[in-house]
Amino acid sequence: MTGYILSITEKIPKLEEIAPVYAVIVMMIYPWTLTRYFWKLSSWILFASVGDLAAFFAYMVVVNLLESILILLVPLAMSIVLPGKWFYDRFKTRSVALVLFGLGYLIYLNKNLHADSPFPLTLVRWIPMALVVVLLLVFLVDQVGFLRRVLDELANRLTIFLYISIPVSVIALLVVLIRNII
């Protein structure tokens, strides 16, 4: 049992590798909602106070925080479950590719999920196939040195945004918790 746990912990990537991946996730998820927040802002400012706007923002950021953690768990789980050579050894590159293609597909899905249109059932039925394609792309991209370097560089540069997003998310979480406890 101890050996099994040890083998799992050994396959959890280092924080320096996780952080850039998380940064990419954050930079895709947060701005998506943030742009919609600013789109709604024009109607909110007709009646909402600054406190209301801050509370809307806090709820929104907490949802984004939970989403980003959930998405991060996917490459982490793959790193643990799959053989080391498949994912753990190239965690950063493959995770970034996975996140980019996976969330890219989610964006495409979202763009077609208008509530006032017929539900795109065909699109949903193709999700398993899309996931297979995403996984194939992840492994293919990793074979191209140039793309690998681009992804690594991109992820490293985005890490700086975690210095903003993490504190903001923690404050937002506290705000939502306090509002729901008191």
């Binding site: 998820i29 909602t33 927040y37 929104m60 939970l66 999920l113 406890i181």
Partner: peptide, 30 residues
Amino acid sequence: FPKDQNMAARALDDFVFKMEREPASMVFGP
């Protein structure tokens, strides 16, 4: 969110998860 129902309704039901256009939440929305 019984203790913050007003804000939760406006922030979540009326924004992040509102049934209009594309979802404002990229992952939980769909």
